[in-house]
Design a protein around this nucleic acid. Sequence first.
DNA 1: CCTACCGATCGGTAGG
DNA 2: CCTACCGATCGGTAGG
Lengths: 197, 197
Amino acid sequence: MAKAQRRKASKKDLILQKAAAMFREKGFAATSMRDLAETVGIEAASLYNHIRSKNEILEAICFDVANRFNTNIDIIEASKQAVIPKVETLLRFHIRQMVENYEEVYVADREWKHLEEPYLSNFQNQRRAYRKKFASILEEGIQKNEIKKIDAPTAILIMLHAVSGIESWHRSKARINERELEDNMIMIMIDGLRKQG
Amino acid sequence: MAKAQRRKASKKDLILQKAAAMFREKGFAATSMRDLAETVGIEAASLYNHIRSKNEILEAICFDVANRFNTNIDIIEASKQAVIPKVETLLRFHIRQMVENYEEVYVADREWKHLEEPYLSNFQNQRRAYRKKFASILEEGIQKNEIKKIDAPTAILIMLHAVSGIESWHRSKARINERELEDNMIMIMIDGLRKQG
DNA sequence: CCTACCGATCGGTAGG
DNA sequence: CCTACCGATCGGTAGG
């Protein structure tokens, strides 16, 4: 619609964006290339001038999200904060990604199992590595007595999945504002970790 | 294999059980009736002597799970416990269902969007009603000063999704035992709610 | 419970 | 970017 497309990637970006919305709503397997084409406003065959296959779309979404989270945790890991602020920063990043980038993040979280090899293994490895980094932050906090004695993998499981529950907030009618949501979540989860509450 | 089938429902039960396992692993849409038939050990056409359609299988799974949770929350609501023990009982029920009844509960939680009307609306209404009951327990706790001032729907969103994260525990290699998992989760989540931690 | 089969739809390609 | 089309696979039925 604008006078000029900033880069020639623009139509492909539109396809990826619409695909993320549809994969989120119906699931990857239940979304057909004809559905997607109609949403984009072209014929199904024309999609293949911009993407190579249905699976390539999923790959683009999943690895784009993974890269963003990986970059972020590396920055936080390297920072000189105490453990609780580190965890808080990490959680706020997760919450904001889920709020602002809802469709993509949700798809990467729930639909990655439809990736094909070698992408599937690659993605799973990145996930595992991410959780390990997160766990080692928590374990540092436990050692330093900043965090109560809990099983770190269990705490991570709770926190990561709790955040992904923002999908229900997104679809809720009478929802509180974003800042309130974030602060409530942080308060509940951080107090669940802290040593003397 | 046993000398007698206790009831004639037995083969249908096998189909439902195998279907739950496959829907969990691959998703509803990506599981074909031929895949399912092979797992059960019969031809695809023979499935239809026991079930009416693919969607009927999903309905059976989803509403079976919903009924169990609804029955439980009604019992807890009617009990005379204080709020924190009520919430703890509720959470322990969720955790145990997720541990012991993994496949079915997971499918009801993640694949219900593939239900068809009128089952889809029915299921969504039951979900909403369940969350409302849970929220009113929390709100009672906030009023009585047993629980800190938080947004109840947000707290519920956190807790319900945290529990559903037990899927990763299930698939984990080096996993802690069930009792430890349950106690860790309860400790983190209940302390996140409690007034002075 | 099986063989044989239906119409519909799928992801994707040829060729322009 | 479209028309025309491919082979494969889908959920499900007929008939025994």
